[in-house]
Every structure is written in structure tokens, then in C-alpha cells.
Design a binder for these strands. Structure first.
Length: 264
DNA sequence: ATGGCTTATTGTATAAGA
């Protein structure tokens, strides 16, 4: 098989979402399956991670977890090497980033800070974190041209990513300063994979649990996959798979899937 | 009901998510 499928998914508690994760992987099997997943908000310490569930299904896992909040994992069909946890140079108690090499790729899986509100301390933390991420990504790209940056960015790229751009103008995930940070990441040498193939507006990856937001399609596109210039020729499609959002007890986020076709 | 959830916490109300 010369097609690789990579997914990013904020599962909002891995322990709660494990059945839905297996159900989703089963659904993708007829389509070729998923070979690499970046998961966010595992919300578990490494010691409590369900290692056996993954290993018994022939998955390799690198996890950077903590109790209650955050936690990120890379789950691959092939071994993971040169694992880096968190962002070099940033003193951070929050487990938000894991970087590793697998399947001939360098992959960064990130759970960007929410930021809460533009006038909050958490927003200032988000901006510091974004600066450190940019430095890490620049460094990784210099060492590994075949680089993927994927995760829950907690940033809408522009108004096309927002269900009501007027109502949400200037609110968290939609501020100019966050979008500039997104743009700065792209300018390092990346492409927004979804937009390479699907440029229509209002393709969302998250819907609030409240207010029947999913049914009414009141969502945001805040989960993204970025591919480096060197990988762009191999990218063959990118889709948001809304099926898991229809499951019983869903995550509020749904997976984004990138297909890469290895050049012959 | 024209909308008001879900997760984790040595819990039983609170903080956080987005």
C-alpha cells in the first residue's frame, strides 16, 4: 500500500473515548485505514495510559500525558523514534506537544492553549506558547524537511472557519493576533492541507456540546493539518471526517485526515 | 424549550473547555 493516512483528533479524554476510537478506525478500514494518529486531550498520566489496548492491536504509541488536563499522543503502525516532549525553551507544566519520527515522516502533534479570552492571563500564555512553538517548528523543519504539524490549534484561520464571523468577531480563536500566529506558521514553509483540496467555507472540526450546535452546524474549524513544502507533492487529499461526531457520547472535536501518496 | 453540555476531581460543587 503506498497511501498513508494521518489523522489528528482531540478525543477529550482518551479513557472515555476509547470505544469510539476503535469504532472509527473500523469505519475507516474499507477506505484503507489510518496509519498514524495524533491525539489531543488524552487527560491521563503516562502510568494510566491504556498501553495494552493499543499494543494488542499492533499500534506503537508515544504519549506525553498529565492528570486531568491536556495530554498528547502519537499512535503509529510503525515504531516511533527521536521523541521530543513539550517545547524546548518553554518552561511549561502543561503537556501539549509531542514530536516524533515514524513512517518516514517527522510529526509534531500539538494541543494549542485555548486562551479563554483575549484580555486574560491565559491568552498571554497562549501567545508565549505560540512563540515557543514557532521556534520549535522552525528548528524541526531545518532538520526534517518531511514535516507534518497537526493538532487542535484552537485558532480559526479566517472567517471561512467560523459559523458566524460577525457574532464571533474578535473573540477567542478568532482574534487577529491568533490568526497572525497561524499565518506565521504557514510562512515557515507549510500548506494548510484541507485548503489544498477543499476551499469551500464552513467546514468545521468542532461543535459545542450545548445548544444543539452540531445539528445546527454552528461550529469552528480549529483542528488543522499542515504539510511542509517537501511533502506537498505527496499530499493527495485532506478531509474532515464528521462521522465520529454522530456517535453516542462523542468528542466535541472530529478527526481531520490527510492522505499522502508516496511518489513511485 | 428557538439553546444551556461534558470532563475530571482522593468530587458531591467547581473549574475548564471553546
Amino acid at each position: 500500500m503506498n497511501t498513508l493516512r494521518l489523522a489528528t483528533w482531540n478525543v477529550n479524554s482518551l479513557r472515555v473515548r476509547l470505544p469510539q476510537l476503535w469504532d472509527w478506525l473500523d469505519l475507516t478500514e474499507p477506505e484503507g485505514g489510518i496509519q498514524l494518529m495524533g491525539l489531543q486531550e488524552t487527560k491521563t498520566e503516562d502510568a494510566a495510559f491504556p498501553w495494552e489496548d493499543f499494543e494488542s492491536c499492533d499500534w506503537h504509541v508515544a504519549h506525553h500525558g498529565q492528570k486531568t488536563y491536556n495530554g498528547v499522543a502519537l499512535v503509529s503502525r510503525e515504531p516511533l523514534s527521536d521523541v521530543v516532549r513539550n517545547l524546548p525553551g518553554l518552561e511549561d507544566e502543561q503537556a501539549r506537544v509531542i514530536t516524533a519520527t515514524t513512517l518516514g515522516l517527522r510529526v509534531i502533534c500539538a494541543y494549542f492553549p485555548n486562551g479563554q479570552a483575549p484580555d486574560s492571563d491565559k491568552f498571554q500564555y497562549k501567545l508565549r506558547w505560540l512563540e515557543a512553538l514557532k521556534a520549535h517548528v522552525r528548528d524541526q523543519l531545518a532538520q526534517h524537511p518531511r514535516l507534518v504539524l497537526m493538532g487542535d490549534f484552537n485558532i480559526t484561520r479566517d472567517e471561512n472557519d467560523v459559523y458566524d464571523p460577525v457574532e464571533l468577531a474578535g473573540t477567542i480563536h478568532c482574534t487577529d493576533i491568533e490568526r497572525q500566529a497561524f499565518s506565521d506558521l504557514l510562512d515557515l514553509g507549510f500548506h494548510d492541507a484541507l485548503r489544498l483540496f477543499h476551499s469551500e467555507p464552513q467546514q468545521f472540526s468542532w461543535w459545542d456540546y450545548r445548544a444543539a450546535a452540531f445539528r445546527r452546524n454552528r461550529g469552528l474549524r480549529i483542528d488543522h493539518v499542515l504539510v511542509s513544502e517537501a511533502l506537498k507533492p505527496e499530499a493527495s487529499d485532506c478531509v474532515i471526517d464528521k462521522r465520529p461526531r454522530t456517535f453516542e457520547r462523542p468528542s466535541d472535536h472530529t478527526p481531520v485526515v490527510l492522505s499522502l501518496v508516496k511518489a513511485p
